[in-house]
Design a protein around this nucleic acid. Structure first.
Lengths: 329, 329
DNA sequence: GGTTAATATGGAATCGATTCCATATGGCAT
DNA sequence: ATGCCATATGGAATCGATTCCATATTAACC
């Protein structure tokens, strides 16, 4: 690959003129332009974005940190970002932490080193060290899914979504409602969704037996185990259960089927996520659609307007959601 | 963010010495090193990878082009690549074509402009223009899923996987076997899987009625439509059907259930893909697991050894697969 | 005590672009 | 003829690192 210098020599002009021809800036005679374009055509020269970035102090790259790239949720998020970013000539530098908290910090560093123009961060957990790092970073920063002080956020309404699911159960006549959650250090999925469950129960004067509240991790099997524990240990077995993710609900469903429980006749079930498979389970799973692509798009828009300085201060938006009522309730 | 020059001034040394301290190259006195490290600590300085890349003529970035990032398959592929690449300090610059052929070419250009150290390409279609571009590109290049001359490939054994599925049907006593494919311009998914179906049928002296061979696109609904056509138009309705992707199989399953066909009693069904949902359908779907993460890992390994010049010539590897026999047959 | 080697440091070129500033030419108005 | 402006071009600085080469100091050896 030749450089601008070689192109200049071959076309018998200076680098300055080549640059001007390439960027349509300043004066270039028709003759010179033709000679330059001919040489470029012949050599297949493309200017180095690397060198340009150094000089212009911008990279046109947005760093994206996700907890894992294997799930649909992340895929849809990233796809939404790409819709907006690629439109504006930005590209995505991807970093997947595989749920490793240490790596979250490491990757922010890595993106800083690469001088990305902005960072979109899909958080799972919060810890002191990370918060501090984020707050003193001078790079445009957007967090999806968790509320973090001092930076822009795109939030899901975890609290109300959970409340709505419980409210649906109650409307259908359920009074004994179980819960399968995840660790509360995950503020959005762990804490807020549980809060929604507990609040709605309380507001309707419904009691919650200790064993109705179970905890899993993010995989299918832990949903199975949690459901098993709930059934085995409860004094009174619930008639409905809310799982905080579709995968947990799927695991729970597997246990229920295996144990001969009818869904929804013996146990209604609902969750949050709207994964593709949720629609095709039998019975089809009632779940909340968070519209991840939209979230990705919104995050990308915020990053772009922050970069362009159209945005004075930080921005927090909360997305709406849709409760998809299907056959499992 | 300060630059190396400012760090040098603050520590009362030259840029050369700072660089040496940072990279543990050449001689640096203990005193100077301490002063430098102190200044770096205080300022939070991190060297610009951008500037380093320009000087060192390498970016430590691998460009990855996928047809879409929304599906599990792509997610698993990229995840596999990331396993290997992040280990070696490389990062992934992601480009998703959204199945737009025009963009495949555009993105290769974009990655070339950014001087990525290598490109991993998950092809869907082949066209003259693209092949030509790839062959005269001077960047290490690996293609996943399609055989392309002149570059390294990581291939799935589409032909034998399809053959094995049909062979399974035949072993189970089926003689009338239908097929739901995609356009044959997609050589791997469209052409080779169909070839496997037809060859195995022929080798077993089984006839294939025209209407048994249907075509869809890559979504669930087209599987539904294809199954409908097959049932409506066939003189004799098949007792088994092979769909080239899990999504097509899912659509077909939906149609069959809706029309009162028992699976597998009236119609056996199997496909290729091993998506997560396949296991949780009822009945669970018989499918071929291609191990996409492995494919991603292998592609990443080839790219790295090509970059390091450990690899003289192009490399072609074909991955094995597992036939997951479940309740749908 | 002089040669050699190890240690320590800095100057300056380099990577490949952009861009400020200087300069040259030709045409047109005064 | 003089001045001015539009057009056209190039020199050189700059972005932020690495690295070759030169040079200075100290230590070690015979």
């Amino acid at each position: 690959m030749p450089t601008i210098k070689e192109i200049a020599e071959m076309a018998n002009v200076s680098r300055t003129t080549v640059s001007r021809a390439l960027n349509n800036s300043g004066y270039v005679s028709e003759e010179a332009r033709k000679r330059i374009m001919k040489v470029i055509e012949e050599t297949g020269y493309v200017p180095s974005e690397q060198a340009k970035s150094l000089r212009m102090k911008r990279t046109k790259v947005i760093g994206v940190i996700v907890p894992t790239i294997k799930t649909e949720t992340s895929g849809r998020l990233v796809s939404g970002m790409d819709d907006i970013l690629s439109e504006e000539g930005y590209q995505i530098l991807l970093a997947s932490t595989n749920l490793d908290k240490q790596k979250e910090i490491e990757y922010i560093h890595l993106l800083k080193v690469r001088r990305v123009d902005g960072i979109i961060f899909t958080a799972t957990n919060e810890n002191e060290h990370l918060l501090e790092l984020i707050q003193k970073l001078e790079i445009p920063f957007v967090v999806i899914g968790q509320e973090i002080e001092g930076v822009s956020n795109v939030l899901y309404d975890d609290f109300h979504a959970a409340k709505d699911v419980i409210s649906l159960f109650i409307k259908k006549g359920h009074e004994k409602i179980g819960f399968i959650g995840v660790d509360e250090t995950d503020r959005a999925v762990g804490y807020l969704r549980k809060r929604g469950y507990l609040d709605e129960m309380k507001e309707n004067h419904l009691v919650v037996e200790d064993n109705w509240v179970q905890k899993g991790i993010f995989d299918i099997d832990s949903g199975y185990q949690a459901m098993r524990k709930m059934i085995k240990n409860s004094e009174e077995i619930p008639t409905a259960v809310f799982a905080v993710t579709d995968r947990l609900a799927l695991g729970a469903t597997n246990y229920l089927k295996e144990s001969g429980y009818g869904i929804p006749s013996d146990m209604a079930i609902a969750s949050i996520g709207a994964s593709e498979f949720s629609k095709h389970l039998s019975p089809s799973l009632t779940t909340v659609d968070y519209n991840n692509e939209k979230a990705g798009q919104e995050a990308a828009k915020i990053i772009l307007s922050t970069i362009r300085n159209e945005q004075e201060k930080i921005k927090k938006i909360t997305l709406d959601y849709r409760l998809l009522i299907r056959d499992s309730v």
